[in-house]
Amino acid sequence: MKYNFLPNTDVKVSKICLGTMTFGQQNSEAEGHAQMDYAFEKGVNFFDTAEMYSIPSREETYGSTERIIGTWFKKTGKREEIVLASKIAGPNPNFGYMRDQLDFSPASIKYALDNSLQRLQTDYLDVYQLHWPERKNNCFGQRGFKVQEDGWEDNIHQVLETLDGFVKEGKIKHVGLSNETPWGIMRFLEESKYHNLPRIKTVQNPYSLLNRLFEVGSSEVCMRENVGLLAYSPLAFGVLSGKFLTGESHPNARLSLFPQYSRYSSEQCTQATILYNEIAKKNGLTLTELSLVFLEQQAFVTSTIIGATTLEQLKENIATINVSLSEEIIAEINKVQAIIPDPAP
């Protein structure tokens, strides 16, 4: 395994992070434990989860992923050897079963954090992230910012003050953002800089060969401000594994089970995937290797969050850490990006 430091800390995290959002729905507790066992054995010391997991979030399975991670910690005693990240959900009218108020008020953060800690059977989180902003910033599956009335009043100072209290209590070590824009990242950094409040260490955003929008604005912010990207959906819901190009049926695939997640299913995404697959084959690589290693080699990526529903997928994903892409291959990738730029918003 290879490691990076969590920005502005002495905490080493594996360049591959285990994503866990299938635990409790697509994966049973036993399967989740097997994935964590294997990942840990291969040097993965970074696990990411969220209060709303498993996905798709439903009242019946709410918190199931954190509970499965918690029973693994209890069984193995490896909590101190894992860098653990979780998230508090933001506003969504469909998720009222989570909390009375889906916001980042002091009461909501305390409620969400304490319940996550209880489910995870731990006293602290290494990284606590705001899963998406309270303001409407078109963060899921939309391209660009659209002006709209959302009634949001800037409460970023209060949010950081609240998180600071939990840092001082020892319940949180570091804080991060997710699904954020360059403005949002800089706004949090500005508030922490001028008021001696916790500094954002990471931002967790989608980033893949089918969605390189993070490179427009946010990558410069991360490089110049030393904030690490935790790249999620690196295989675009499995599209960039190439399995949907074979013509075979995949009834247990996430896109088959949950067709509402169509972000990476457009004709343009398919065309781009075919071209990336040709590059991979020509260079003796799998499409999975090409897709994940491209991210792993980006300077602004601290860790790439991989998710799998089978151990075979997990093994293939983790093994990509030993693969590298030449400048010539990167140039071929960039030619496709120029022809079909960011087909998934």
Rank of each mutant, 00 (worst) to 15 (best):
Y194D: 12
G70C: 06
I340K: 06
A331L: 12
I200G: 02
L257C: 05
Y38V: 05
L210V: 04
S266R: 12
R199Q: 13
R79I: 03
L125I: 00
M1H: 13
Q129P: 08
P251F: 07
L295Y: 02
I306D: 00
V301I: 06
I333Y: 08
P198W: 12
T65H: 04
R119S: 02
K136E: 10
I109M: 06
I156Q: 08
M52E: 11
P345H: 11
S326R: 12
E191Y: 01
E41R: 08
L290D: 06
I69S: 03
C269A: 14
E278P: 13
E51A: 15
K12A: 04
W183E: 08
L311K: 03
A236N: 11
N211W: 08
G144H: 04
N45W: 09
F40R: 05
T288A: 06
N322S: 07
V239T: 15
I16T: 01
V301D: 11
D114K: 04
D10R: 05
K136H: 12
F294H: 13
T202G: 01
N205K: 03
L113Y: 00
T61S: 08
S324T: 15
G176M: 08
I306W: 02
F166P: 00
Q25K: 05
E215F: 04
M98V: 09
A85W: 00
E66K: 08
A50S: 06
E328S: 14
